[in-house]
């Protein structure tokens, strides 16, 4: 950039190089229908999901089945027990977090649900958490239950044997992606179209 020519009045003073412009905006959120149903369940220490016409159960529900693009009209209660499908061990304190490090943030597939939720695993050393481990919800004290998923403090091992065959969402059609190097590119037909029922090398991994 070419040299700036300043007028005499500001030529010999310390130039401003940055400016603070704090800004606060206030919002009032509403939860919407599906989330309200879910949080109403939480207040009663129940985990409520919603079922889509195709049978999928979503927890927490967001009102739409993203595969069908349709509303999920049926409320269903799922178990408070599930299986770890993946996880990471966190060794850093994040904003607003009061966790003792290391802690485990895991994907947990609740029995009866089709999609893993993300939550904390406690009451077990971090290095002993495993994919396939069975875990159960631990709630806050009754007096502290609020309409937030944080009312489930964390999950802890149930002591059951690991579910070594846990269906990891998405893995069902993994084989359909193969053979690129042999010259066969994947197509939409690799998976079953939930609207038409066409395609799919497996039954959408439901097995």
């Amino acid at each position: 950039m070419a040299e700036i020519v300043l007028p005499p009045s500001i030529r010999d003073v310390e130039p401003v190089r940055s400016v603070r412009t704090p800004a606060q905006l206030d919002y009032e959120f509403t939860a919407g229908d599906a989330t309200t149903r879910f949080l109403n369940g939480i207040v009663n220490k129940r985990i409520i999901g919603q079922q889509a016409p195709g049978g999928r159960v979503y927890v927490p529900p967001r009102g739409a089945d993203p595969e069908l693009g349709q509303p999920t009209p049926i409320d269903v209660e799922v178990a408070q027990v599930g299986t770890v499908t993946s996880f990471c061990v966190v060794n850093l304190q994040f904003y607003g977090s009061v966790m003792e490090i290391p802690y485990v943030s895991a994907l947990i597939l609740l029995d009866g649900a089709d999609l893993s939720i993300m939550h904390l695993i406690q009451e077990i050393p971090a290095d002993q958490v495993r994919i396939g481990m069975r875990v159960e919800a631990v709630w806050r004290d009754d007096a502290d239950i609020e309409p937030t998923f944080e009312s489930v403090r964390y999950f802890r091992p149930t002591g059951e044997p690991d579910d070594v065959n846990v269906r990891i969402p998405g893995e069902g059609h993994g084989t359909g992606l193969g053979s690129w190097v042999g010259g066969v590119a994947p197509t939409e037909a690799v998976i079953r179209n939930p609207r038409t029922g066409q395609g799919g090398t497996t039954e959408g991994g439901d097995a």
Partner: peptide, 12 residues
């Protein structure tokens, strides 16, 4: 205001 629906519910 559409309080009773989230954005995806409102859009569908």
């Amino acid at each position: 205001r559409v309080d009773e629906l989230n954005e995806v519910e409102m859009l569908m």
